[in-house]
Amino acid sequence: MAAQRIDLKNPILAAALAWFVPGLGHAYQGRWFKAILYSVCIWSTWFCGWALGDGKVVYYNRDMKRGRWTAGYAAQVLVGAAALPAIYQNGRASPGGKPEDRSQIELKGPISGTFDGALAGVNFTDGRKAFFRVRGQLEMQPSDDDSFRRSVTGRFTGTVHPTDENDAGVADGTAVEVSVNYLESLEPEVFPSAHRALKCTVKGRISGAKGGDISADLRGKVLNVRSLWNRYAAPLDAEGLEAAHGDLGKYFEIALVYTWIAGLLNLLAIWDAFEGPAYGYGDEDPATGKRPDDKSVPPPVVATATPAPVFAEPPPPSQVSATG
């Protein structure tokens, strides 16, 4: 047995370490080549998938109300420490055992940063309608007004970039300044993206435009406002999953497969840490299965004749007659 030639130390501890951090179990056993090989292969596959999926493919989403859960996570969690935060993040994102509805999520504190998005359904006071791409600075905070639960106050200042089809007579790069008054939709705080999407109603003015007073929907993302703690291994809600498929296309699936395969490969590595290599050390003679340092002579094979069947001799006739 190859395991007899390898000091597996405490196999259960080695297997646990191999699960928790790929390669660590073999390092504990002093099998350095395998420790490096497993860690490089499994970690690179894992992070390749993670990066390819824009950090959105490793998550555990359990909807207690509908009885659904992310089955692919069963393969991902075999990588151990890198996937475990997903369970905790699911609890943070779904406090009631169900993902939050974006139209019900409230703004809990101020949010500000560079905003990239669109002014949709723009209504000018003279009746013109338009749609503009916008980029600028957004500052928003919860309103003190208790009459509407989702009231917010804030301001967006930036520039508008009309589309070719509908410029409404507004030049590209025209300044816009609007005040925010009602939050229609907000992405969860725990979500696998650095940017936070929102949609709100606004009123304000586009500088220099004829009939420049407007009301519109401001929709888009505040860039780089989510901390790593709030986005690592965080679950996707239904809208987020749809958007991720739209943004990443087939690469979302490829990224998922990479992370699954990384986990499944680590399952093999865990078993290797527990039991040793399956076929042998690797230097055995293919014909005899012996190690190179094994000088023992195998016992000679002696051909033996098949022994004749032994039958009990029949009793003599005198005994037969006496008993009969």
Binding site: A2, R5, I6, R31, F33, K34, L37, Y38, C41, I42, S44, T45, C48, Y258, I261, L265, L268, A269, W271, D272, G276, P277, A278, Y279, G280, Y281, G282, D283
Partner: peptide
Amino acid sequence: PLVVTVSLVYNATRYELPEK
């Protein structure tokens, strides 16, 4: 890349010698 990593990890679980 998947072919390379799967081959390496699978065979590492079969044998112990790096050359093998």
